[in-house]
Computed example of a mutant assay.
Amino acid sequence: MSRLAHIAGGSVALAACLGLALAAPAAADPPGDNGTVKIDGVAFDTHPDNEPHVGCRFQVDFYGFDMGDLNAAVTFEGQAPTGKDTPLLWDSVFIGEDAAGGGTDLDAEVTYNLANVISQLGAPHPIQGYHIKLTVNAEGSIGADTKHKVFWVTGCQPPS
């Protein structure tokens, strides 16, 4: 390769790098399947951690969803080995408070208590308790709008 071709090739590479550096910054609120849900056990906090073993009273935290008049349909049901596909509870949660801000942007947190409905699943697993599947259908997504979490619930006392 001649020295002139080498210099010209370097100029093209430099121009390409500068073009990338000067491109518009990525949007803070990207389109698409924004948002995540996390299961939070007592003591409740706003950190985006997921706790797969909780008591009968727990929270579902919603992070990073888009802004607008958007709600999430929330469904809890049994998951094998305890009460597979047995519906337990339904809810609707407002999630469009602000623009999608990523995985630490808390949009909603809702406390649930399955004590009054958990007996529909039959006997708990002798070690783990009840296996629960959370399904969230979140409005506003471009693409798939469904989120799932599967977790274990223990310590539920039947209603007196």
Results as ranks from 00 to 15, higher is better:
M1C: 00
A8D: 04
A8K: 10
G9F: 00
G10A: 13
V12L: 14
C17S: 15
G19R: 02
L20A: 11
P25S: 12
A28L: 13
P30K: 08
N34C: 04
I39N: 12
D40E: 14
D49W: 05
D49V: 09
D49Q: 12
N50Q: 07
N50E: 13
E51Q: 15
R57T: 14
F58D: 00
F58Y: 07
D61S: 14
F62N: 03
G64T: 02
F65Q: 09
D66F: 01
D66W: 05
D66H: 14
N71V: 04
F76G: 13
F76R: 14
E77K: 15
A80R: 14
K84L: 05
L88T: 15
D98Q: 11
A100C: 10
A100S: 14
G102A: 04
G103D: 02
L106H: 11
N116G: 03
V117G: 09
Q120R: 11
G129L: 06
Y130G: 08
I132Y: 08
I132C: 13
L134K: 11
T135C: 03
T135D: 03
A138M: 00
G140M: 04
S141E: 14
G143Y: 10
F151M: 08
V153N: 07
V153G: 03
T154E: 08
G155L: 07
G155P: 11
Q157I: 05
P159L: 12
